[in-house]
C-alpha cells in the first residue's frame, strides 16, 4: 500500500517514517512525501495510479489542501485514491467543506497515530 503524505512541515516525513517503521520495514506500507499542493499534483501525475491513499494537510502556503482535494477529485483518473484531510482546526465548517469536496475523512491535529493506524487498516 502506497501512501502519499502532503504537509508543508518537513519534519512530518521523519515522524511518519519513525512511526510507521515496522510497517515500512515489513513492506506492508510505502510512504511518499510532498511538501506542497503543487508538488503533490506533479507527483500524482508522474506516479499515476500508484498511490492508494493520500493524507493531506489543509493549511499550506500556495495550494491549500482543499484545492489539492478538488484537483484530485475533478481530474485524477481511476482508480480514485482514498483521501484523508488533516487540520489543526477540527471545527464543523472545515469538516463540512472537506466532505463536500470529496474527502473520505477529516482528522484533527495532533494526530493520534494509534487511531490513524486503525483507520488505515479499515479504509484500505
Amino acid at each position: 500500500m502506497k501512501i502519499l503524505v502532503v504537509d508543508d512541515e518537513t519534519d512530518v516525513q521523519t515522524l511518519f517514517e519513525q512511526r510507521f517503521r515496522r510497517e515500512v520495514r515489513s513492506g506492508e506500507m510505502q510512504l511518499a512525501f510532498c511538501y506542497s499542493g503543487e508538488q503533490a499534483v506533479d507527483y500524482l501525475t508522474a506516479h499515476h495510479s500508484e498511490i492508494v491513499l493520500i493524507l493531506s494537510d489543509i493549511n499550506m502556503p500556495g495550494m491549500s489542501g482543499f484545492e489539492l482535494l478538488r484537483h484530485i477529485r475533478t481530474t485524477y483518473p481511476i482508480p480514485p485514491p482514498t483521501v484523508l484531510m488533516v487540520t489543526a482546526y477540527g471545527d464543523d465548517q472545515s469538516r463540512q467543506q472537506a466532505i463536500s469536496l470529496g474527502a473520505n475523512d477529516l482528522l484533527s491535529k495532533p494526530l493520534d497515530f494509534q487511531a490513524l493506524k486503525e483507520k488505515l487498516k479499515s479504509v484500505v
Binding site: Q18, R19, R21, K109
Partner: peptide
C-alpha cells in the same frame, strides 16, 4: 496558541515515537 500548537505537536509526537524506538 495556534502558533504554538504545531511545534508542540511535533515535540509530543517525536517524544512518543522515541519511546517506541527505545522499546524496539
Amino acid at each position: 496558541a495556534h502558533e504554538i500548537q504545531n511545534p508542540l505537536n511535533f515535540v509530543n509526537n517525536f517524544a512518543e515515537v522515541s519511546v517506541e524506538l527505545c522499546q524496539e
